[in-house]
Simulated scan of single mutants.
Amino acid sequence: MTAAVSASAQWLTMLSPPLRDRLPTVGTGTTGATAGAPRDMADLAHAHAAATLSAVLAEGQADRAVIEAERVLQRYHLSDSTLQPLVVALMALVLATALDLALSWCERLQGECSSRRVPTWQALLSAVRAEIALRQGDLQVAAHQARTAMSRISVQGWGVGLGLLLSTLIQAETGMGHYDEAMALLEQPLPEELFQTLPGLFYLRARGRCHLATGRYHAALGDFMAAGELMGAWRMDTPC
């Protein structure tokens, strides 16, 4: 039970850093019994992935994050219980700027799930593929993959993950000069708790860039300052 609690705590505080002060401190969740049931392996996968993302965000250790992310991707097979940890490991590679490696793994996983016709799997991997394309400067692919992801899961079904998906699409449309499309995306209602989560940071950056590109300088400054204050408060103010 301790391993499961530890895994849950790491996962929750990775997604929503303000929860650090409200959850009990337990072990890392990446050690201990691993030979048990699939549920144990799922807990381990979540804890391992959360620690990987923490390495790049909170500690700024990009090299270690890349190594650990690859271990996650090599160790766990794609399934309902490991999909989210695998996606998080991919995002760790993206944030560590290991984009070619992230692309290789993402396309491999997309190939695995293409024949299984599971919309959730395809949507999450398309969302990561979109972010990779955005950071590689391929804005058309980024927009296409992001819209594909949005078409496979309802807006409500994305939860706070909608912030990450919208951030990619807003930046892609802004970068291509499609300002009307980008501004229309800013009208999308958001979960109230978004700005207490990591996807909220991505969204603030994207909205700030859209405001900056369309001459709304005070709004852009407000978004960038808000993101910076959250990063400082969450002890994530690192170059990564």
Rank of each mutant, 00 (worst) to 15 (best):
T2Y: 14
A7Q: 11
S8N: 10
S8D: 08
Q10L: 13
W11N: 12
T13E: 06
P18M: 11
P18K: 08
R20F: 10
T34R: 09
L44G: 05
H46T: 10
L53K: 14
S54C: 14
V56K: 03
V66H: 05
L73R: 02
R75D: 15
T82K: 00
L83E: 06
V87D: 01
A89F: 03
L90G: 11
L90T: 02
M91T: 05
L93V: 01
T97E: 15
A98L: 03
S104W: 04
S104R: 12
R108F: 14
Q110R: 14
E112L: 09
R116E: 12
R116P: 08
R117A: 15
R117I: 12
V118P: 01
S126K: 07
E131L: 05
G137W: 04
G137F: 05
G137A: 10
A142V: 00
A143V: 02
A146K: 00
A149M: 01
M150L: 13
M150N: 04
M150R: 08
S151H: 10
R152T: 01
I153L: 11
V155R: 11
G159S: 02
G159I: 00
L162Y: 01
L166G: 03
S167I: 04
T168P: 02
T168S: 03
M176N: 13
A182V: 10
E187T: 12
Q188F: 03
P199Q: 02
Y203D: 01
G208Y: 01
C210G: 00
R216T: 06
H218I: 13
H218R: 14
L221W: 09
G228C: 03
M231I: 08
G232L: 15
W234D: 05
R235S: 10
M236D: 06
T238A: 05
C240E: 09
C240Q: 12
